[in-house]
Simulated assay, not measured.
Amino acid sequence: MSKPILYVSMLLLMMIWGFNVIAIKVIVEYFAPITITAFRILTAGLTVMIIVWIGKEYRNVTKMEWVYIVIASLTGVLGHHFFLAVGLANTQASNAGLILGLVPLMTTVFSVLLLGDHLTISKFLGILLGFFGVAFIVLNGNGRLSSISIGDLYIFFSVISQAISFIFIKKGTRTLHSRFMTGWMLVIGSVCLFMTSLLLEPKGLSTLQSGTSIVWIIFLGSAVIATALGHSFYNKAIHHLGPGETAIFINLTPFFSLVGSYFFLGEQISLLQLAGFIFILFGVLLGTGVLGNEWPKIKLHKKRHTTIS
């Protein structure tokens, strides 16, 4: 798959994920957050594994590949979705949007530390522009962050967990098909989430009776389209583009969340928020190397690099 097609596909995926933030917010308001997240991720995992089985992509996994799968499951599924679900239930959407915008920055840091990646000037400026654009969007309401809450900390922990998982997804997909790895990650992570929900939400299963048919449709759309198919493609993009470059696109999700809020919740979009999107757009163009590709690299390491295998 060529880079232009990957970039367009990533743009569409970020739109889906932006709308998915609204879907998750609706879901966790009806059900116990961790419990419903476990079932949502399990539904996504089983969907991916069915696709893997139909496509005859299933195979035996080596010990080292299991290490990558398990670590990615614990960080990218258990850690990320646990903190995201609980965080969204305990903080404002604006705060969550800004903190989630830190994913590219954290991913780049871990890519440099664990993969020995170089940080180019254009990519560095792109990340800064993207972060600035996210700030424009999420701070539009009152121009400042409210005091840090426990929900804010949970969202930040979800950012760290997801950034770490991208590194091990990159390592795992060197030998594993991205969809195959995604399926195992989602299934293993959902089981861990369910065990966690039994401890933290002992009455969580009883809340599943309170959902309406529309809410369950939203649940299925979030699980199958955004999580199952979305994460399968995203992990494939990590394999082709690398974790740092791929994560830059996540800066687009707050904008699409705003668009979804406008169409589905009747909220208004201001000129300041549109200005934020422009910063994000140029941030993505710089960060992915579409612009400024000829700029020199920042030497953050010595000539001889060591990476974790």
Rank of each mutant, 00 (worst) to 15 (best):
V86A: 00
F282K: 14
S257L: 07
G242T: 14
S213H: 10
L271D: 12
T108N: 06
F156M: 10
V77T: 10
G101C: 00
K203S: 04
F279N: 02
L291K: 08
G242Y: 10
G242V: 11
V191G: 12
A93S: 15
I137A: 07
T306C: 04
S149A: 09
I169K: 04
L281S: 07
M1C: 09
F219C: 13
Y58C: 03
F124I: 00
L265V: 15
T246G: 04
P4I: 01
G79W: 03
A228F: 09
G126V: 06
L272Q: 10
T62A: 12
Q162L: 12
F168N: 03
Y154V: 02
F31C: 06
H240Q: 10
K171I: 01
M14I: 08
I16P: 10
V28Y: 01
V215N: 09
A163I: 06
F31W: 11
T306Q: 07
T75Y: 06
I225W: 13
T227E: 02
L129I: 03
R174G: 09
G18H: 12
I238N: 02
I99W: 02
W184R: 08
I217C: 10
M181R: 05
S232Y: 06
G230S: 10
T207N: 06
L46W: 08
L98D: 10
A275S: 15
V61L: 11
L300N: 09
L205N: 00
G266R: 12
S222P: 09
G189D: 08
H231M: 04
R304Y: 13
N90F: 11
L153D: 01
S147P: 10
R144H: 15
K303T: 09
I127E: 05
P202T: 00
T253G: 01
F249A: 07
I278L: 14
V28N: 02
S122F: 04
A247P: 07
L78H: 07
Y234L: 13
L186D: 00
S165V: 08
L11P: 06
L46A: 11
T227A: 07
S147Y: 11
V224N: 05
G292I: 04
L300S: 11
F249M: 13
E245T: 10
A247W: 12
L265E: 15
V52P: 01
Q92S: 15
S122N: 09
I248R: 12
A96F: 09
K297R: 05
I41P: 11
I51L: 12
N95K: 09
S206G: 01
F131Q: 05
L74A: 15
G87K: 02
I160R: 03
T173P: 08
F264S: 15
I160H: 14
S210A: 15
G141F: 11
N60H: 14
F110N: 11
W184E: 03
I225V: 13
K302D: 05
G126S: 00
V290K: 00
F83P: 14
I218A: 03
G189F: 08
T196G: 01
H301I: 01
L12G: 15
L78R: 06
M106N: 08
T288A: 02
V21H: 05
I27L: 06
L98E: 13
H81C: 02
I16V: 12
F31I: 09
G97T: 02
K297Q: 04
V21W: 05
E294G: 06
G266S: 15
T175D: 01
H177P: 04
K236P: 06
L105H: 04
I150E: 10
S165I: 11
K170V: 05
S270Y: 09
Y262A: 15
I51C: 03
V224Y: 02
E57A: 07
P202I: 00
T227S: 05
